[in-house]
Design a protein around this nucleic acid. Structure first.
Lengths: 342, 342
DNA sequence: TTGTAAGCGTTATCAT
DNA sequence: ATGATAACGCTTACAA
């Protein structure tokens, strides 16, 4: 198909090695030879064969984006698209490629794991939102595959990038307290995910800091889906909270539905603050007050961290990079009181 | 890192070739030898090196999902995530991998094209929603890279998968006519995309079939974004249509905003029908009557078609596969008249 | 049925 | 500064 190094060499009247040097910008080539070789390369449209190159260098310049199982359901949530966009952008600017691997249901995870992660195609991987006890992680560690997690993890050897979920949640709940609310409930994310746990921690911290007792009846676990939000809100209604911190915008949309059915107005009868600031947050009526996290930025950061690990790799073991990106509160209509608009 | 064929061979007391045969399920291996080799493979955790394999077979089992430039903006729209999901699912079940390539702005497209498409890493590609005159397509044809387009194309040599946009749009507008509307406007998609053109054609066909004159003032070009929908609807208001066919749900959300600002109620003052049936269509108030297309199915179909092309490849030139998937009208609240609910 | 050996298109280590 | 030549890990004739 495409011409090879050998053919270019013959046409240019030099050896394979020289052409290789030219292509890789090695210094030891006479300028005139270099120019002449480039000329031939342009003429015949030579393109290095990445696979052959990878075989000898054992570097593919491909990194995997691994999105495991359960999470895949959330693929209609803009979270993953944005993460992908950020990751791709960083890859593009470093001349790396992104291989996308969604682990669907139980399609023999083990087999897929072997085929994808241990096949030599990947220099490393980014693991997105595995639940905390996902077996993928121990496997990756065992096989010494360089990876960075999106979402923090306690294990000290694991590189990660995460949003500051705790502080974000704390800001959200503090805002509700500032508006005079005392009966503040929360719909959490799945508690087997660190993001779910952290946003709940932030909720607790905010209440405790103000001496407001935390009632367990005011805490309902959700699953980051819209229908989950609806169900959770229905379960919450009997406790008659005056405000709810919902751990994701998508769940907030579901919660709004439940409230509409129950004839409660937002924010007049009940205030809502959520998390993410995905596009629907500002599109819906009422527009959601929510905690913004830089999802795209997390994606590109994850790539940057991984590349730096790959760079350093095979030298000494570097300490894990743990990066936490800031979050900010975006005040809109769903929490009431236009007064405190910033 | 991982053991090689050679090492397995030594441990099993056979030659490389035999191990290779075992791994690839060649028939010519004595059952007992086969079993013994498998035993060693399991013991040492041998995993074939995909890159080495690919170098000799010149098949990488990787296909690229190419999403060009402009379109990237739409990445917060669920269209691409769903397409990706469908494509990944099909890939998983055929033991193929998906490489994701977003061509961002003008990041030297030509260079990226060379590096990605001609590097030997890809067996073929799926090209999503390039505008009709995207230079990518001629390049792919010139370089004889197997690909299938998501979105139909006039060129007879191009394989494609598409939704039946024309009939979908026709059904939508016919429904409005059935409800008694005569002043029916449309907000189109970008007319450099075939989907934009086809949905407009369907609109025209429906009106013409009923002898309703098509007024050019009732046609405003949008761009598939929400803000584009808002702007288009504002431009449309002076023409005072009684109903509007909006070429995408996302634009319909924007149009709803414009109508709310203008104090027009939907569907009482003005009826809306849109296209896609993405999740927000049923989440928003009023719920959107819309034309559903199977986006995930398009993704998996695109992969299936590509794989069949790869299969047949290097034999004779097969005629282009052109697959059009059906669309269906989903009736909800935005068009009024619960009577015609099916 | 099994083994030997010649590539696949590169990079990298030597000499020269 | 340049050119042989040996890998890289595998598949695949061709022999045996």
């Amino acid at each position: 198909m495409s011409p090879t190094l050998e053919e270019v060499a013959q046409l240019a009247g030099v050896s394979r090695s020289t052409v290789s040097r030219v292509v890789n910008d090695h210094p030891n080539v006479r300028p005139e030879v270099r120019e002449q070789v480039w000329e031939v390369i342009r003429q015949v449209g030579y393109q290095p064969h990445a696979v052959a190159r990878s075989l000898v260098t054992s570097r593919s310049h491909v990194i995997g984006m691994i999105i495991p199982e359960a999470v895949t359901t959330l693929f209609t949530d803009p979270f993953f698209p944005l993460l992908l966009r950020g990751a791709t952008e960083a890859c593009n600017s470093h001349q790396y490629q992104l291989m996308l691997s969604l682990f669907m249901a139980n399609t023999d995870r083990q087999e897929i794991y072997q085929r994808i992660l241990r096949s030599g195609y990947l220099d490393g991987a980014i693991v997105a939102s595995a639940s905390l006890d996902d077996p993928l992680i121990p496997n990756l560690l065992r096989d010494q595959i360089p990876f960075v997690s999106v979402g923090r993890r306690p294990n000290e050897r694991i590189h990660y990038v995460d949003a500051d979920n705790i502080n974000g949640a704390r800001m959200a709940v503090e805002h509700l307290i500032r508006l005079g609310h005392r009966r503040i409930a929360t719909i959490t994310g799945p508690l087997h995910m660190i993001a779910g746990q952290d946003r709940l921690s932030g909720y607790r911290q905010a209440l405790e800091a103000r001496g407001i007792p935390v009632e367990e009846g005011m805490i309902v676990e959700g699953d980051f889906t819209e229908s989950g939000g609806t169900a959770a809100m229905q379960r919450l209604l009997p406790a008659s909270p005056s405000a709810v911190f919902v751990a994701s915008d998508t769940m907030a949309v579901g919660a709004l539905k439940a409230l509409r059915q129950a004839n409660r107005r937002v924010p007049q009868d009940i205030a809502l603050v959520s998390f993410d600031d995905i596009p629907i947050a500002s599109a819906i009526e009422p527009a959601l007050t929510t905690v913004r996290q830089g999802i795209e930025q997390m994606g590109s950061m994850a790539v940057e961290v991984l590349l730096s690990v790959l760079e350093a790799s095979s030298e000494e073991e570097t300490p894990a990079q743990r990066i936490v990106l800031p979050t900010e509160l975006v005040i809109r209509a769903s929490c009431g009181s236009a007064l405190s608009r910033s």
